[in-house]
Structures are given as structure tokens and as C-alpha cells.
Design a protein around this nucleic acid. Structure first.
Lengths: 208, 208
DNA sequence: CCTACCGATCGGTAGG
DNA sequence: CCTACCGATCGGTAGG
């Protein structure tokens, strides 16, 4: 998935520089934001000259978009893996995976960046939402009604309830940089969320 | 040049300018972020000279902190009002108020700004979290066990579950700038969250 | 001659 | 309060 059309053949030096710059730019933009990013520093961190950055990516904004296109693509892949996992693992397994991915050092800083730049780059924030959390939520909405022991009248609402019972509180805390929970506590919180979900959506028991 | 004596705080012109600048700066920082903010533009929007801004607030960072100190104080007030309302309105009434406040044009942009600047100003993001959502959550944890018809074993977890069942999905969407739900849909989503919470934490019915 | 790259520097802007 | 202006910084580019 070439972010830019292969303007000049497939010179392995360019291919290599492109990947190196993209990785360094990701870290740099995540650390400093769009305006706070410095192409000189970024290029130095990537170990290439600034000119190379401009030759390959054209400019700061284009580089930023390339970085986020890739990051959103990766987030989409993770989301698809989560979606695939629904068929094989139970709700508890899904919850633990969900919380691990969303509270990871890959996702939290990316979400911070996209939220912080959502006025400057609204399409990027929207694309992320649609292709990552939105994808998970849509798949959940399809999957939940097929599970035994649950009664799901409104799949979209149930999917949102599951997701935010599992990750809501720790994720919101993390967005503000509050101390991240340890893995054990995260898992505990995720399972407590699943338990609450199962009680709320149990097939038997409390009829309408 | 700035020969103004430190006997500030009494001069009504300063008091007035201070308030005008603070309000204009709030809008400006929320719209552009910290680095994107422009003191010349901000001063013009406030209708004062740039020099006045520096006379009163000293600099960009000090002005930013003053703006956010005030905004966090206001968010804390709202949270305290929500806390007070718990004694008089039911869970449904509380949920509707919660969703209205958190999804408002006052709170969503403030949260975006604080999250976006949470690396540059970690104490501000932490202060907001502690004094606004944290305060609501702590009060909820105290309040929920006193309500009839519910069985609350772990008040902190139950408080988090209530809050994120009610506002989780629409708030997360809103952070990424996705189209805000209408008041009717928001209220509907909030009440669906309360209904799920009541099922999950019903005192009678589904034993283990 | 071309592509990739570097050292050096310019035009424009922002905080102060 | 305004204009003018500084020291510094930064995105982007020309020469080699």
C-alpha cells in the first residue's frame, strides 16, 4: 500500500528512506503534535537529511498525512484482528484483548494526537474513528446477537455498552495522561465490565 | 517602558481587561491549540492591544494556564452541581444531565484541548481529570450504594460502569469530531445506558 | 546525465 | 495603546 505513487522506479535506497522517515516521523509527530514537530529534528532522528524528507514526502503536511494514513491503516488491521477473534474467543477473551490493544502505547498516543489535531485535520480523525473503533463496534453489533445466553434487542447499543463497560474508564483516564493501570488491574477491570454486560444482557431472568 | 505599578487588582480597567482577555483567550486557545495560538490575533479578538495582554498576563504560557485554571474551575463547579443533583433526581435524571453537560460545546472542546496538550501540560490534564470526571465518579461511588433496588458490591467499578454506559459512546465519538448526536438521540442513548445499568446491578433476580 | 543527498541559506512568521 | 522592530526559529529551496 504505497502512500505515494512510486514516482521513481523502485530504488531500494528510496524504499528504505521512506520507511525510516515514516517511522521516525510517527514518533516525532506523536511526541510533539503537528505544529510542534520540527522537520530538522525529525530528519536528524531519522538519520537522513532534511532534503531527503522533502524529496520523498513533499512537505510537512504531506508527511503528517502519510504518517497518519499508515497509523490508521495499522489501527484498522488491529481492529480487524479483534473482529476475527470474536468468532473464536469468548466475550472475556475479547475484552482482555480489547483493553490490551486500546490501552497500549501504540493506541493511546495516536488517539491523543488525532483528538488534538481534530480541528486542523478533521478527515483524519473521522477516518480513524470510522476504521478503528467504529469497525470494532460494527463487528460487535453483528456478533453479539449470535452469542448464546444473551438477549440483544438493539445490537448497536449493546455493542457500545460492551465496549465502554470494558475499556471506558481506563481509556478515558489514559487520554489525560493519568497513570496507566497495570496489566493485572486492566484485566480485572475488563472482566468486571464483561460480567456487568452479561448481567445486563442475560437472556433469562428479568423480562421486560 | 512598562511602568505600571504592581498595585493591580484594584484598577477597574485592569479587572475588566483581565476578564475580556481571559474569555477571548479561552476561545482562541480552544480553536487553535497552544502552539497554534497567536497573541496578536488573540489581542485583536479581545479588543485590546498585545501590550495589554503581556502587561496583565506576562506571556503566552501564563495566559494559557490562567485560561485553563479558570476552565477547570468551571468544570469542577458543573461536576459539583451534578454531584448535588444526585440527592434529588433519580439515575435517569442524573444520566440526562450528565450527557448534556459532557457533550456540550463547553466541555468537548475543552477536553480536546487538554488531551492534545497533555504532554506539554501534564499537570493541567491531570487536574482536570481529578476535579471534573474524577469528582463525578467519586461522588457516584458514594451515592450508588444508597439507592434502593440496586446491589453495589464495588462502588468504584459500578460508578465507572454507570458513567460510561451513559456517556461513553457519544463522548468518544465527539472527541474525534464526529457528528454530534441530537438532543433526542443523546437522551435516548443515556436512558438506554441507565436501563442496562439497572439490569446489571439489580438487587433481586439473577443470582450467580 | 540522472537520482539521491548534503551544507548552507532564504523568505516569512511568531513571541516578545 | 500603537507602530515598529528585535532575536530566534522554522518550513522549504537553490547550488554543488
Amino acid at each position: 500500500m504505497p502512500v505515494r505513487p512510486p514516482a521513481t522506479g523502485e530504488d531500494p535506497r528510496i524504499v528504505r528512506s521512506r520507511a525510516i522517515i515514516l517511522a521516525a516521523a510517527h514518533d516525532h509527530f506523536v511526541a510533539h503534535g503537528y505544529l510542534g514537530a520540527n522537520i530538522d529534528a525529525l530528519a536528524e532522528e531519522a538519520g537522513v537529511s532534511k532534503r531527503t524528507v522533502y524529496n520523498i514526502y513533499g512537505g510537512k503536511e504531506e508527511l503528517f498525512r502519510a504518517v497518519l494514513d499508515r497509523a490508521i491503516g495499522i489501527a484498522e488491521e488491529f481492529s480487524r484482528e479483534l473482529a476475527d477473534a470474536m468468532a473464536t474467543v469468548g466475550l472475556e477473551g475479547l475484552a482482555v484483548r480489547l483493553v490490551r490493544v486500546l490501552l497500549s502505547d501504540r493506541v493511546v498516543p495516536l488517539r491523543r494526537l488525532l483528538i488534538g489535531e481534530s480541528r486542523r485535520f478533521p478527515e483524519l480523525a473521522a477516518a480513524y474513528y470510522d476504521r478503528a473503533p467504529g469497525l470494532v463496534m460494527r463487528t460487535l453489533a453483528e456478533h453479539l446477537p449470535t452469542l448464546p445466553g444473551l438477549r440483544i434487542d438493539d445490537p448497536d447499543t449493546a455493542a457500545a455498552h460492551f465496549a465502554f463497560l470494558v475499556v471506558g474508564a481506563p481509556l478515558d483516564r489514559a487520554m489525560f495522561g493519568e497513570q496507566r493501570l497495570g496489566d493485572t488491574e486492566l484485566e480485572r477491570a475488563a472482566l468486571a465490565g464483561v460480567a456487568a454486560f452479561r448481567r445486563a444482557y442475560a437472556a433469562a431472568g428479568n423480562g421486560p
